[in-house]
Amino acid sequence: MFTRVDYSKLNARQKENYNFQKVAGRLADYGFNCLRLNDDWHGADFLAVHVDGNAVLRVQLKGRFSFDTKYRDRGLHITFFANEDCYVYPHDDVLAVVEKRGRFGETISWAERGSYTWPSLPAWAVEILAQYRV
């Protein structure tokens, strides 16, 4: 009755919905209830509300490890999957570490457009993101 979907055959919106459900499932294990937003609210695709009633994460869903200057100073977390690993990291905190280590170099993407993504997770990033794996 149930047939697994081929992720590569989903369109962009379907992939976003799929990824949201996968992340929400992971965060549920840590006491978070995820609430999908109809549009980006201050950069967030969804809210993750903790059962303690105090913690609320504003989360931007991405397809890969990335940063964007438009997300600075917004208190956002970024989430993405690298293979079977799911990461939810505070954008500004991790960005500060990556900038300090000079991992953008002199790229046009970062210098002129203010955004940067990696098509696959670099080995050096696994160390930085280890504490944010869920």
Rank of each mutant, 00 (worst) to 15 (best):
L37S: 06
N38Q: 08
D92K: 13
V126M: 12
P119D: 15
A123I: 04
W41Q: 09
A28N: 12
G25W: 09
T69I: 05
V88K: 10
S8R: 14
G63W: 03
D39Y: 13
R64H: 04
G25N: 13
P119I: 09
Y132M: 02
Y89F: 15
A48D: 02
D73P: 00
Y18F: 14
I108F: 15
Y132E: 02
V23N: 02
N17H: 05
I128Y: 10
R13E: 08
G102Q: 13
Q21K: 08
V23T: 10
R113W: 14
L27M: 12
G75Q: 06
Y30W: 05
A48I: 01
D92G: 07
L47M: 10
D45P: 06
C86L: 13
Y89E: 06
L57V: 00
K70T: 08
R103H: 15
D29H: 11
D92I: 04
Y71E: 10
Y116D: 08
A44E: 04
T3Q: 12
Q14S: 07
M1V: 04
R103T: 02
D68A: 10
H42A: 04
N83E: 13
V59C: 11
D85I: 01
L10R: 12
Y7P: 00
C86V: 08
A44T: 01
L57D: 03
A125Y: 11
I128N: 06
V94G: 03
K100Y: 11
V5C: 08
E106P: 05
S66V: 01
D6H: 09
D93R: 15
L95N: 07
C34D: 07
F20K: 05
G102V: 07
Y116Q: 10
L61H: 06
K100N: 15
E112F: 13
E84I: 03
F67Q: 04
T117S: 15
G114D: 10
P119L: 12
N19Q: 07
N17G: 02
A55P: 00
L121C: 09
L10V: 01
D52R: 06
D85A: 15
K100A: 15
F65Y: 12
L121D: 12
L37T: 02
V5E: 11
Y7S: 01
F65T: 05
Q21L: 05
K15V: 00
K22D: 04
G25C: 04
A96E: 15
Q21N: 07
L121H: 08
D45E: 07
N54R: 10
K9A: 11
P122R: 14
N83H: 13
